[in-house]
Amino acid sequence: MRVGAVVLAAGGSSRLGRPKQLLVHEGRTLVRRAAEAAVAAGCEPVVVVLGAHGEAVAAELAGLPVQTVDNPEWQVGMGRSLRVGVRALPEVDAVLVLLCDQLQVDSAHLKTLVDTFAKTHAPIVASGYEGARGVPALFSRALLPELEALEADQGARKVIVRDPSRVVEVPLPGGGEDVDTAADLSRLSPRAGG
C-alpha cells in the first residue's frame, strides 16, 4: 500500500504578519516538523506545496526526502493548493493531507491514520477534535477527484463532511491548537523561543 502526503505550506500568514511556516517550535520550523512527521509516518512521496515565501520555506526542507511544488495561485485559497499537491502525486492508494501549523500533530498520529486506513479501507480517515472532523486526514485514491474539484476557497473538510458514513475518525486531542494570530504566536513563543 502506497500512501502519499500533501503538506499545505503555501499561505501568506496574513493574520500573523510573518511566515508561520518558518516559526520555530520544539527546535524546528513548523514546515520542517510537518514534513518530517509525514516522512516518519511512512508516507511516500511527501509533496510540500509552496506559495508565499516559497524560497525560504523550501530552504527549511533541505536534506529531507520531500518534493516541493509551487502554487502560483496560493492567494486564492487552500483548495488550489490541494489541487496542485494532489496532481503532483504519482499513483498512490491514498493521500494524507496535513497543514504545517497544527502543533499536536506528530508522526505517531499520522501513522495511526495510515494504519487505520490499512485496517478499515475506509474512504476517509480523519482526525477528530473540537467536536468536528478535519485534517490531518487520509483520502483513498477514489476520492482524489473530489479533492481536485474543490473550489479555491474550500479546504479538505468540505470532502470530509460531504458524507459522514464514509469517514472513520481518529481522535486528536488538541488538534485545534494552531498558529494563526499574534496571540497564538505569543502562546507558542515561551515554549519554543519562536
Score class of each variant (00 low, 15 high):
53 H>K: 02
57 V>E: 01
51 G>A: 06
90 P>D: 08
76 V>A: 13
86 V>R: 01
73 E>H: 15
35 A>E: 00
69 V>L: 02
33 R>C: 01
87 R>G: 14
69 V>D: 05
58 A>D: 14
37 A>Q: 08
41 A>S: 14
93 D>R: 07
95 V>G: 07
56 A>V: 12
52 A>I: 02
59 A>Q: 12
88 A>C: 12
46 V>R: 04
36 E>W: 07
65 P>L: 05
47 V>E: 01
93 D>L: 01
42 G>V: 05
55 E>I: 03
53 H>S: 15
91 E>P: 01
96 L>M: 02
95 V>C: 10
41 A>K: 06
72 P>M: 13
95 V>T: 08
45 P>K: 09
35 A>G: 02
90 P>Y: 13
86 V>G: 06
72 P>S: 13
42 G>N: 04
96 L>R: 04
71 N>K: 03
66 V>G: 04
94 A>L: 10
46 V>H: 05
51 G>R: 00
53 H>Y: 15
38 A>Y: 00
33 R>S: 00
51 G>I: 09
53 H>L: 08
48 V>W: 02
38 A>K: 01
36 E>V: 06
63 G>S: 14
35 A>V: 01
80 R>Q: 12
40 A>H: 02
68 T>D: 02
72 P>K: 14
39 V>K: 00
74 W>R: 01
68 T>L: 11
81 S>N: 03
72 P>Q: 14
61 L>D: 05
82 L>I: 14
73 E>K: 08
54 G>V: 03
47 V>A: 00
49 V>S: 08
60 E>M: 07
56 A>H: 11
60 E>G: 10
33 R>E: 00
53 H>W: 15
33 R>F: 04
75 Q>K: 15
49 V>C: 11
41 A>Y: 07
44 E>K: 09
44 E>Y: 11
74 W>Y: 15
75 Q>F: 08
70 D>T: 07
76 V>Y: 12
86 V>P: 08
43 C>S: 12
74 W>A: 08
71 N>H: 09
63 G>D: 11
76 V>W: 12
60 E>K: 12
32 R>G: 02
40 A>F: 05
77 G>E: 06
88 A>G: 09
56 A>C: 07
93 D>A: 14
56 A>Q: 15
72 P>W: 12
74 W>Q: 06
39 V>M: 08
73 E>W: 12
75 Q>Y: 07
83 R>F: 05
84 V>M: 13
45 P>V: 03
34 A>L: 13
50 L>K: 03
80 R>Y: 01
58 A>P: 10
46 V>E: 05
86 V>E: 05
67 Q>H: 13
39 V>G: 05
88 A>H: 11
89 L>E: 10
45 P>N: 11
80 R>T: 09
33 R>G: 00
59 A>T: 02
47 V>Q: 03
54 G>E: 15
88 A>W: 06
